[in-house]
């Protein structure tokens, strides 16, 4: 049952890949891609046609997880941002039992290598999907082919506040720690920290809303122009908020480290 489920979502993934291919500039060229797909369809050991995803139906040898397989598909999950942690964990444990090197100690070198590679990939996939923020960043990457946007200037609506904060931080670093002035600055920094942390929570709430809108749109699976535009807008908004959030988070970390 499990294998069949994965097989269906695999074909779903292939159509998505075709759709997003043009925007994915980091992807290998089309020839490489075809070669990988070819390799996937045949068992490395007995060369028979592969029907199952991770184990050959005929010789029961473990198969390397394709580099093209996205993490959602790997776990047999739809590409949605709301995700049940219990389901994810259960699936992770199940696949760990299938792939972990502990169970390949008596097998051939080739199988041990595959087990190691698959386990490492599975662990990365689980770590990424388990965390809502990393999951959204990963989905953005899959959907819009964007690498994480690293912001170097403050978000527009926080510009003044951040510049003020930087000044206060510099002043605090230069001040005598025991002085009254430092104590005043420290109080101000604590207040700033509270503001920024609230700001972070607001952004997370906004993200949650975007996540729900995205999932709803995916569930409807409309192929209209309107839906396409809506998708694009949600993805752009998500990316903006995610990068602003990372920026604010780094500032908060810096602030905490300074006043500690």
């Amino acid at each position: 049952m499990r294998l069949r489920g994965i097989f269906f979502s695999l074909s779903e993934r292939q159509s998505m890949n075709a759709h997003t291919h043009s925007t994915d500039d980091r992807c290998e060229n089309t020839d490489d891609r075809r070669e990988l797909q070819m390799a996937r369809s045949m068992c490395w050991h007995c060369q028979s046609e592969m029907a199952g995803e991770y184990f050959c139906d005929r010789c029961v040898k473990v198969q390397p997880v394709s580099k093209d397989l996205d993490y959602f598909t790997c776990f047999g999950l739809p590409r949605r941002l709301a995700l049940d942690p219990q389901t994810l964990e259960t699936k992770f444990y199940e696949l760990s039992r299938a792939f972990h090197p502990d169970f390949y100690q008596n097998k051939s070198d080739a199988e041990q290598t595959i087990s190691l590679g698959n386990s490492a990939m599975l662990n990365t996939a689980y770590r990424t999907l388990r965390d809502p923020i990393q999951r959204a960043e990963y989905l953005l990457d899959l959907e819009a082919g964007s690498v994480k946007d690293i912001r170097t200037t403050p978000p527009a609506d926080l510009f003044e506040e951040i510049l003020d904060l930087q000044d206060t931080l510099d002043e605090f670093r230069a001040s005598e720690r025991a002085s009254e002035h430092a104590s005043t600055l420290r109080t101000k920094l604590h207040a700033d920290r509270a503001v920024l942390e609230q700001r972070q929570r607001d952004m997370e709430a906004q993200l949650q809303q975007l996540f729900s809108r995205w999932d709803a749109l995916q569930d409807r699976a409309e192929v209209t122009e309107q839906a396409r535009v809506e998708r694009g807008r949600i993805l752009k908004d998500m990316r903006d908020i995610l990068s602003n959030r990372t920026y604010v988070k780094n500032i908060v970390n810096d602030l905490v480290a300074t006043i500690a």
């Binding site: 972990h100 502990d102 169970f103 100690q105």
Partner: peptide, 16 residues
């Protein structure tokens, strides 16, 4: 116990 897992004796336990 871990040695037994590796030799295939114990199959219900897995350490991650």
């Amino acid at each position: 116990v871990q040695a037994d897992i590796l030799s295939g004796g114990t199959t219900d336990m897995l350490l991650l």
